[in-house]
């Protein structure tokens, strides 16, 4: 590599930049392969399982009676069927929104306090991150099949699609500003075109994921939040209809992909 760089310094020009970018891409792929083989994601799954079973809140109960859509306490395969409509809440919910709902209704915890620190840090991972890793892992090998039949599910899907192309904010961005054309990247990061099934499938089948560069689990609610931050928009409420609609639109677009997460990201 060093020799090659020396050659580039002498010859210079666009050709070398292109070759270097190609080379860097290959290196990134090799690195991604390497980190996927020994991912700390399993550590978070273990902690998530502990949290699922741990009595908490004024009611001193665990989340084991939480209905994630397949019946109270059923974890296996639940993630692959989310987001979906929940009759008891009369709205569509994704995993994190549903978990928050259960923390409030089952454990008797205050909504604001519980939602105050849903996005953690490397030093202090959040409860929501570990729980997401644990629940999602119980759907490995199952096809992603979010709810798309209930009128509210259809409404949320349509809203998610409209939001994807809606331009607003200080920089006039929509989701499609970055995720709208094939073969594009921000810096060295490839950008999936998320309204196309072939691009959405590898995404929905690997989120949530362990992010090596920040040593933490990142969830889809976090992804929506962070995109809006970079779009120079105000902050979306955690678990709001906006975030759920986008997650449903994304998951529906990538549906039928067998879940193989939680994944490992750069």
């Amino acid at each position: 590599m060093r020799k090659f760089l020396g050659f580039c310094a002498v010859v210079g020009g666009g050709f070398c930049a292109a070759v270097l970018a190609q080379d860097a891409k290959k290196e990134i792929q090799r690195y991604q392969q390497m980190i996927a083989e020994g991912s700390p994601v399993e550590l978070f799954e273990l902690q998530g399982e502990e949290l699922w079973k741990k009595p908490q809140g004024p009611n001193k109960v665990s989340l084991e009676k939480c209905d994630l859509g397949l019946g109270a306490g059923v974890v296996k395969g639940a993630y692959a069927r989310l987001p979906r409509y929940f009759k008891d809440a009369d709205r569509v919910m994704d995993l994190e929104t549903r978990l928050l709902h259960c923390m409030v209704t089952l454990q008797g915890r205050k909504r604001e306090e519980t939602a105050a620190r849903v996005f953690g840090s490397a030093d202090r991972p959040s409860e929501m991150e570990s729980l997401s890793a644990y629940i999602a892992a119980q759907s490995r090998g199952m096809k992603m099949a979010p709810g798309l039949s209930h009128p509210k599910e259809k409404e949320a899907y349509a809203m998610g699609r409209a939001l994807y192309f809606h331009r607003a904010g200080a920089w006039d961005f929509s989701c499609a500003s970055c995720h709208g054309e094939e073969g594009k990247r921000i810096r060295m990061q490839d950008l999936p075109v998320l309204y196309k099934p072939e691009h959405a499938r590898p995404v929905v089948s690997t989120w949530p994921a362990y992010r090596v560069s920040t040593s933490q689990i990142v969830t889809l609610q976090w992804r929506m939040n962070n995109c809006y931050q970079q779009m120079r928009m105000p902050e979306p409420d955690f678990g709001s209809d906006t975030t759920v609609a986008l997650i449903l639109f994304l998951t529906a677009t990538g549906k039928d992909a067998p879940y193989r997460g939680p994944g490992t990201k750069r």
């Binding site: 809203m159 105000p234 902050e235 409420d237 709001s240 209809d241 975030t243």
Partner: peptide
């Protein structure tokens, strides 16, 4: 929807 779901 954005006005309802977002905060400054």
């Amino acid at each position: 929807v954005l006005q309802r779901d977002f905060h400054a």
